[in-house]
Every structure is written in C-alpha cells, then in structure tokens.
Design a protein around this nucleic acid. Sequence first.
DNA 1: CGCTGTTATTTACGCGTGTAAACATTGTGA
DNA 2: TCACAATGTTTACACGCGTAAATAACAGCG
Lengths: 343, 343
Amino acid sequence: MSDQKIRNMEHFSAVCGISRPTVSKYFNDPESVRKSTREKIEAALKKYDYRPNIYAVNQNRRQTKNIGLVVPNLTDPFFAGIARTIEGLIVEAGFNPLLLSSHGGPEHEIANLDSLRSIKPAGVLLAPLGRASLEDQVAEFANEVPTVLFDANLGDVGEAYFGSDNTQSISLIVDYLCRSGEPPVFFEMKAPINPNAYKRRTAYKAAMGRLGYEPHLLQVDGQGWNFEEIGFREGARILTGRQLPTNTILCSNDRLAIGLLSAAFENGFKVGLGAEASLRIAGHDDHPFSRFTCPSLTTVSQDYEAIATRSVETILSLIDRGGRMQTREETLFEGKLVMRGSA
Amino acid sequence: MSDQKIRNMEHFSAVCGISRPTVSKYFNDPESVRKSTREKIEAALKKYDYRPNIYAVNQNRRQTKNIGLVVPNLTDPFFAGIARTIEGLIVEAGFNPLLLSSHGGPEHEIANLDSLRSIKPAGVLLAPLGRASLEDQVAEFANEVPTVLFDANLGDVGEAYFGSDNTQSISLIVDYLCRSGEPPVFFEMKAPINPNAYKRRTAYKAAMGRLGYEPHLLQVDGQGWNFEEIGFREGARILTGRQLPTNTILCSNDRLAIGLLSAAFENGFKVGLGAEASLRIAGHDDHPFSRFTCPSLTTVSQDYEAIATRSVETILSLIDRGGRMQTREETLFEGKLVMRGSA
DNA sequence: CGCTGTTATTTACGCGTGTAAACATTGTGA
DNA sequence: TCACAATGTTTACACGCGTAAATAACAGCG
C-alpha cells in the first residue's frame, strides 16, 4: 500500500494507465471492462487507497444505490432483528441500506421519509407504525419513491406488502390451547396502534367460534409502545380483580405477555401446564426474549426470514423494472407453533 | 403549495427573485441574510417544494453535516436505547446521524467504519466491540476522522471516552448485597468481549476485599453476544451442580442475569429477598427488560443520559475546533442502585 | 446630504463524477 | 490478410452546488 494520496478518479486513472471513463465504467460494473483492464485497475486498487467520491457519484447517476429501511421502533428487539436480516440482504445485493427508526411516533415516521427523500433512495422498505401512521403523507411518499411495506399493512400504500398470516397463526395457537386445556381469553389493548392486532382479534373470535366456544376479550387501556409496562399494570389489575371465565390467557403479542407473566409472578400465580399451575399464558411473535421468561413463553413464531427475503427481492425487482408493479402484491406467511412452558 | 417542480437552486432563486449565491448563503445559515431576504425565501419555501441536493451540497462543502454513530449490537435494547438518545441530540444540533450496528462482529465493525469513510462524516461516535475490535484498524480510522468513544474504551483510540465507572457501580452493589444478606459470588464469562467486564471483575474483587470477604468467581464458557443463552445454559449447570459458597449471585451484566433467572426458575429455585427464597440474583446495567423478569431484577443503572449527552457535546466541540483535542479526555459516570425483587 | 459599513448581486470558477459520441485500438475468425 | 466486433480512448458536456472577488444597492447616522 503506497501512502501517496489519490485525489480523484482522474488521478487514479493516471496511475492505472487507463482512461478515466473506463475506470468509471469499471466501478459501475467490473465485468463491463476487458479482463486485462480489470486486472490493471485491481492491482492499482491494492496499491493505492482510492474509492470514488460517493457524493459526486450520486449526483450524476440516474439512481443512487441507496435503499431506505424504516422500522417503527428499534428499541423492540423484534424489529432490530428483522432490520439486521434485511440489511444483510440489501448489502449482498450490492446496495446500501439506510436504517431509520420511527421511535413509535407518526411525526417521526414522516420525518424519516422526508430525510430519505433528500437521499434519493432507489427504493424503500417500510414497516409503518400502522393505525397511527399519517397515511396520506406516507402514501404521497410511496407515490414518489418505489416502496414496499412489511410487517404492517397500510391501505393500498406501496407496491407490495409482506407480513404474517394472523388468521392462520392465531387459529393455530387457539387450536392448541383448546386441545391442551381450557379455551383462552384474549388479552389485548383497547385501541392498538398495530393493524395486526385487529386482525388477531378477529381471528381469535373466528377460531373460538369455529371450535364452539364463546370468545372473551380482555381489552385494556394503554397508549404507546410500552407493551410490557401495559401488560404488567393491566395484567395485575385483571388478575387480582374480577374472575376470569378460564385459566388460559392468549396475549395479542409477546411483549404484552412478558408484562403479564411478570404481573402473574408478582401476584403469586403459578403459570404453566402442570396440575399445580393455576394459569396458562401464551403470546404471539416469538420475541427474542420469550425463551427466557419465567416460565418460558408458549407462542407463535412469525416467519420473518421469509418476510425479509421476499421484501428485499421485491424491492430489488421493482428497482430493476423502473419502480412500478402492475398489481399490488400482498403475501402473508404462516406462523409456527412454539410450545414452551407457559401454556 | 404550487405543484410546479423546482429543478435546482438556480431555478428556486429565480422564483424567489433573489440571486443564487444569496439563497445558498441562506441554506447554510438563515441568519446570515437580511431579514427581508429571509422572508422572501421562506415564503417561496412554503409555496414550492424545494430542498438543496444533498449530494451536490456535500461535494462542495469542506465538511459534511454527517455524524456517524456505531454501536456494537442493535439487537441489544440497551444500545438501541442509547442510540436513540444520541440520535435525538445530534438532530437537535443540526447534524445528520447515521446509525450503524456492528452486529457483534469485528469485521462488521471495520466495514461500518469503512462505509462511514466514504460518507466523509464530520465526526463519529463509536461504541466499539471491545476486546474483539481490530484495534489497529479502528485507531487508523480515528486518526483520519474525529472520533469519540463511548460505552467501551479502546486503548487511547479517539479523542475522548465516556463510559460508566464500573469500580464505583460494582462497589455500590456489592456493598448493598453484603449489607442485605450473604456476600455475592461473581457470575461472568471466562473470556468476555467487553473490557467493562474485566473492570467489573477487578472491582468485584476489590470491593469484597475491602469488606473483608473472600471473592469467588464463577467463570463460565461461552462465545459471542447471546448472553441470555449463556446465562441460562451455564447457570443451569452451576445451580444443579456444585455447591455455591453463598446464596447470592452478582452477574457481570443484566443479560446474563436474565438467563440465570430463567435457569433458576426452571430448576425450582425461589429467587428473592424473603426468608422463603433460597437464592439472590443481581445484575448490572438496568437493562430495559430487567423490570419485567421474575422476580424483577436488582441491578445498577448506568447513567446513559450523561454518557450520551457528553459524547455528543464533545464530538460537536471537536468538530467545531477542527478535529483534535489537546489531551484525550476520559470521563466515567456513576451508576445508581436499583433495588428490585431479586436481591 | 454624503459618508460608512453591511448586505446582495454578478460573474466566474471549481468540485469529482456520469455519460455520450466520435474515434482508435485490439483480438478473432475466415 | 482483411473485415468485423468488441473494447478502450479522447473529448466534451452535464450535474447542482460552494465560494471568492468585484461591484452594486442598501440602511443608519451625523
């Protein structure tokens, strides 16, 4: 590695002994130049520390190589995990991921889209906040920039949507709970931010009806994204208060269940399957921490590998074909039952 | 809002009725132009949707307004939280944060620094992996770009370091544990990746010595960042195996403690303070989830507000004065005891 | 009113790259 | 050996903005 500083592509092409346009061609696609030329350039790259100025490149390219990735809340390990997977896939495809979190706030979500605008991304993968999203503004963005939604759907915004099949997954766990004990009540927030929550509620009612049971909703107050806190506080209220019609509680998501488990523990309930247990608790999502709750949480895992993979594939082909789909694709992936100690 | 598209600053300055260089001046600092001019520009901004091309701007400015923010692992809610706080502070200061996670991998850490290089950030806030970091390459980066370390120190890399005072915090909780029951053994990984872990080990030994007790280390095997998993697996082994010299276990961090609590639960140990409990467990960090463990986890909170604030202040003043400090600052912030149910 | 210092305009150039067109060179196969 | 296609070079322009220098307009003041 020589310590001579390369000023720009002109300079670099000079030390290569090759013209600048050819070097430019090389950086856009190494395969597009003759083998002997490629080798000369790569030898020089080993020797000198040069890389094209990204700002000059992006100013002149028709498209940047940037792909925006917006998740509702990075503090939630579930989203941190899926973001990581997606980032990896984007990098593999030769693009540059830009990760932004909306921190649970609709204004923040719009601010994220706004700052993505100035970066002129080739495409955007967006997991919207859901009900709280400022749909008009999100739709406007998706109109300007090729956008694929995942995790939560939002009207017909974007060119495609990939998420979980809540009907299937909730049906699956309701079925399991009924077969292995008493039919579950459904623990959820009264006004959830997430549209999946509504689908899960409906799916719960349908599943219970199909099995010949009366559905029973425990709808608790609570705002925002502090699900564990809400599950804990409202769970304690419910457990110590009125009588439940059954010993089994299915939570709308794992984070509520984690809070509820904590409340059950504090109030002396023994949670689990065995005869000595007085309560069964199940969740939904297979949150990274649900393996380590006490007892470990029975839940349904989302197929987030599939969601990530298909979302990335779709945005890439979308970019490839110039930004628009003929029809909006909506694909839901099935969940898998994860049987653990809590139910 | 007119729907006429503004092509560039030239065009925009035309509809403003002001020259382009003046408009350029406005965008660099709105206060630098006459009030009447400012009002004209702002009126036009309301009417037309224009913002300077970020690539053209950054190509010509001596400095970009970008500040890189690299954390070791975004999947860990602790880092997600501190990253969020830091992001907010950076935005407030009029800069543009770029969040990257090293996903626990040294090569990934270097790759992150490398991709930051091409973005030419004005400064970088780096929470390094620690022992696993490729120190030479990190140091080389810090030599090129004004860099402030936080959370984990790394030789004398960077212009400053802000972190927790492990000596104080460990001493604090050892003190508490000894006053409230039996003196603790120290549960940790044999070869931790985090340099803080070594400081905590040393601090534990010193604190025990000071109080007249024999220190006792439980050093378990385990690689990587799956601390809960390691805490669970090795915790189960320890709890069901050899006799412990005491009923109190202090974990090197909360994530190990979360795993250990889970293992204790599975193996029928009753954890807590009361007479009926057979085990006490404490952690370190006040992880977001430690409020919801069963029982809730007694721990020491890190003053991450202070770490975040001082780190950002420092990188900003560093940028302001041209990138170099006269001396490398190292400041440690005190932890606070968080007494909960587990010890 | 004219002076003075501040702010805006005009003009001009530079940043580092993409890209198109015309032309030159190279390698290939008949 | 020649023709042909593929690849490289040369030349030239464009992108959208920062910035400097010279000049012009302005506000405030006595």
